Amino acid sequence: MPAAPTARAVVLDTDIGTDVDDAMALALLLGLPGVDLLGVATVYGDTALRARLARRYGALAGLALPVRAGEGKPLSGREVWWAGHEGSLHTGLDGEAYEDGPAVEWLVRTVAERPGEVDVLAIGPLTNIALALEADPGFAENVRTLWVMGGAFDDVERTEHNFRSDALAAHRVFSSGIRAVVTGLEVTRRVKVLEPHLRRLGAAGALGGALAADIDQWWKFWDEQWNVPHDPVAVLSMVRPELFTLSEPGTVLIETEGEDAGASVFRPGGGGRTRLVRDLDTAEVPEEIVRGIVAAGTGREPAAAEA
């Protein structure tokens, strides 16, 4: 009898709490089969609040999720953008305990203990990742692959929030030679979460109900009836690669100064080890996101979409 496949070991680095897509990404990771989420590091702004919120989402899925608070100040010195609603719908959040110790030290230690085995999924500004590379020159090689949601690689927009929020950190990460796959705005914006998706999520237990409320709050913040699941798309690029098309390897260059700080350019070839997500299955990706989150909320394996 063949052995069961080994679960993919993953560390999540996130600025959960502002754009609701981070919470969606965490819930998706908790619902997808074949993922061993080793823990969560938070980044950018009030990382303690973000850590409590991540811990709460783990609890809603019935898990005591290891979470650590990371670096709050961007290396670039850019002011943190804080929407003001972070965690406001979650009562008793101050009572959520998270792990002691700096998140960056934990990141370095976790991948060093299992070199080449742990994927790092970075869906916020890259401050923690840059600091991990600074703390341990071996970090770049110890990480199996760094999966990033960030950047804009077409002619529509010059910058994207995660790279813009700490352009210096992004520059240091992509200058390190770390093996990476990047999902940019030009890809994520091809997918939307709509009202039918929201209804299905809201019916998925305590986790689904809390997430649906956070999504609704985000919609009201922008006066929209939809949102783009940027970070869940990046999750699926790692877990369901058959739904995506990647570029050949190359190098990502980051502008660090002036009004275009955070602007990203991809140059193929040249010995680079970064790939861009170029295309995706626009029908299956949103369905897979909803199925995975519903599974996390209901404690069952993802099933086919309901009619």
Rank of each mutant, 00 (worst) to 15 (best):
L93G: 09
D15Y: 15
A234F: 09
F153R: 08
D166H: 02
G72T: 05
E301T: 10
V118Q: 08
D281V: 03
I123R: 06
A167R: 10
A4D: 15
G116H: 08
E134N: 03
P232N: 12
A296F: 00
G138P: 05
E186L: 12
D216E: 14
D100L: 13
E160N: 07
L211H: 08
G92E: 13
L146N: 12
M238D: 04
R50N: 04
G31T: 03
F163N: 06
A61N: 00
T14G: 03
R200V: 10
S247I: 14
A7T: 08
L29W: 06
F221S: 05
D22R: 00
I178E: 07
T14W: 08
A203R: 14
G92C: 12
D231H: 15
F139T: 02
W106E: 08
L276N: 04
A180K: 07
E186Y: 07
G116Q: 10
G87R: 05
Q225A: 15
L243G: 03
R273G: 09
V120T: 11
R55Y: 10
A304S: 15
R144W: 03
R179W: 06
T47V: 11
D13F: 10
P102Q: 09
A206C: 06
G269C: 08
V10E: 02
R291Y: 07
W226Y: 15
D166R: 02
